[in-house]
């Protein structure tokens, strides 16, 4: 990914539909454009399709119909080494964490940087920096499997931002956190966003997007709808 031109889309979804076997419509006719450097929220009830949408964007799932492009690459068509190259540029904080329980916190976070062959010194420094930001420096050598759900959630967030990706996708990143820790996590995302990272946060937590001036998207039964209390914003009327 080269330096993004102004207002160019990093994510472009055109009329995407995802149906799970046998006939569960997870997403229907979704069209969405996210510009470079944008931070936006994706809301909706459980089962509305938020996680599926994030999975389509990070390439874990493919749409049955429609087009999903990330950084100009059609995810249905990219092959070979392009796939890992693109994935290294996307940081995903999973709702189910996807941590390795028998590895330490530091090792779990480091994985994201190791796959892009960063030097061991850089990795160690970055891991300590992130743990300090999330007030978890004392858990550096703790096994991920021994952590509380809130702590595991912070580790998965740290891993998502560790490699300084161009795009961060966070699935319910504050679901298990108290308000103080939620603030820490949001500060971390805001810092990443200020440094140019595009961030899409799927959340139930009204507290983190109600007062935000960022765009909010709402999913209802697999379709994008206008949020009840605000106009569906587009990249053109972004703040």
């Amino acid at each position: 990914m080269d330096t993004p031109p102004a207002k160019k889309s990093i994510v472009e979804i055109v009329r995407a539909t995802k149906i799970y076997t046998p006939d569960v419509v997870a997403l229907e006719d979704i069209s969405l454009s996210i510009t470079y450097g944008e931070m936006l929220f994706l809301t909706g009830m459980s089962g509305a399709g938020k996680t599926t949408l994030l999975k389509l964007i990070c390439g874990m799932e493919h749409p049955d119909k429609g087009l999903v492009e990330v950084a100009g690459k059609d995810l249905n068509r990219i092959k070979g080494v392009e796939i890992p190259q693109l994935r290294q540029q996307i940081g995903m904080a999973y709702q189910d964490f996807k941590l390795l329980p028998d590895r330490t916190v530091a090792q779990n976070i480091a994985m994201a940087m190791e796959v892009s062959y960063q030097s061991i010194r850089t990795i160690k420094k970055r891991v300590i920096e992130l743990l300090q930001k999330l007030r978890m420096e004392h858990k550096h050598d703790a096994l991920a499997g021994k952590l509380s759900r809130g702590e595991q959630q912070r580790v998965t967030i740290a891993r998502a931002v560790a490699n300084s990706p161009k795009l961060i996708l966070a699935d319910e990143p504050t679901g298990n956190l108290d308000s103080k820790t939620t603030r820490l996590v949001m500060e971390l995302f805001e810092q990443c966003n200020i440094s140019g990272t595009t961030i899409l946060i799927a959340t139930h937590d009204e507290g983190i997007y109600k007062k935000s001036e960022n765009r909010v998207l709402e999913l209802h039964s697999g379709r994008l709808v206008q949020p009840a209390d605000r106009t569906i914003s587009t990249p053109n009327n972004m703040p």
């Binding site: 874990m60 890992p84 190259q85 540029q89 996807k98 390795l100 994985m111 994201a112 796959v115 062959y117």
Partner: peptide, 16 residues
């Protein structure tokens, strides 16, 4: 398998 799956999602190449 779980670890390899995570590595794959994080963008590990086949070589890695």
């Amino acid at each position: 398998q779980a670890e390899l799956e995570i590595l794959r999602l994080l963008g590990a190449t086949n070589g890695y």
